[in-house]
Simulated assay, not measured.
Amino acid sequence: MNIPVTTWSLEQTDRADLLPAAAPDGDVRIVRAEVPSPEFSRFLYSAVGGDINWVDRLSLSYAQWQEHLDRPGVETWVAYDRGTPAGYVELDPQDDGVVEIVYFGLIPAFRGRRIGGHLLAYGAARAWDLAERWPGRAPTKRVWLHTCSLDGEHAMENYLRRGFKLFHTEVAEQPQQATPGPWPGSHG
C-alpha cells in the first residue's frame, strides 16, 4: 500500500538568516566526530531515524559508508548530554558554496529537552563556516535541507524558528514500510 508523503525543502541564503536557539539546561556539548567511522555514523543514523522511517542508508555496505564519510567537507557534529550521544547533524558540501544538512535529529530519549533547536542552530552555523575548516572550498552562500511528513512532529517548526525559509514542496506516493525502529532486526 502506498501513502502520500510531503517533502519540504528549506534554505538559508545568508548567514544573517540563522536565528539562534537557547542553550538547553545541563551539560550538553556538541563535538565534531573528526575520525570518519561507519560504525558510529550508522549507529547515529539508526538511533535517530529508527522510529521515523529513515531507511535509505540501512542497506549501505561498510565500504559505501566509509566512501561517503571520507569525502572532503563531509562533517558529523554530535550533541552529547552528560557524555551520552543525544543526536547529530551531518553536513555535506556541494558545488558553488552550497552546504546541505543531510541528516539532523535526536535520539528519541532526548527529544523534548530543548536540545534540538540548539543542535540545529549549531549545525547550521557550522555549515556557514565550513570553508574555514576545509581550505580550497568556496565560502558558503547557501545552506539547505529537506524534511518530510514522516519526520518528527516538531521538525518543520524547529527549521522555521532557526530562520530557514521554504522554497519547494512536493507530494509523492511512497510504499508504506514497517518502520525498523532503533533496533533493526529485533522486532521490538
Results as ranks from 00 to 15, higher is better:
R71A: 10
F43Y: 12
P20C: 08
V89T: 06
L130I: 05
L119S: 02
A109S: 15
P20F: 09
R111D: 12
R57C: 02
H154R: 10
W65Y: 11
W128D: 00
G163W: 00
V99Q: 04
A138T: 07
R137A: 05
V55A: 09
P24L: 04
Y88M: 12
V102D: 15
Q94Y: 10
D96R: 13
P139I: 06
R71F: 04
G163Y: 00
H68K: 15
A109H: 15
W134V: 11
R71G: 04
R71L: 07
W54F: 11
D95N: 12
G163L: 00
Y45A: 02
R57D: 04
L91G: 01
I115A: 07
R126P: 01
R142H: 01
P135T: 00
V35M: 08
V55I: 15
Y103F: 12
D56E: 15
G117Y: 05
R114F: 14
A33E: 12
S37E: 10
Y159E: 06
G50A: 06
G50F: 09
V48K: 06
V55N: 08
A47S: 11
L19N: 10
G26F: 07
R114S: 14
P139R: 08
V55K: 12
A33C: 13
A86M: 01
G112Y: 08
L120D: 00
Y159I: 04
I115M: 09
Y62V: 14
R137N: 03
P108Q: 01
Q66H: 11
S149V: 00
M156F: 15
R161K: 15
A33S: 14
E157R: 11
Q64M: 10
P20Y: 09
R42L: 05
V28I: 14
G49K: 05
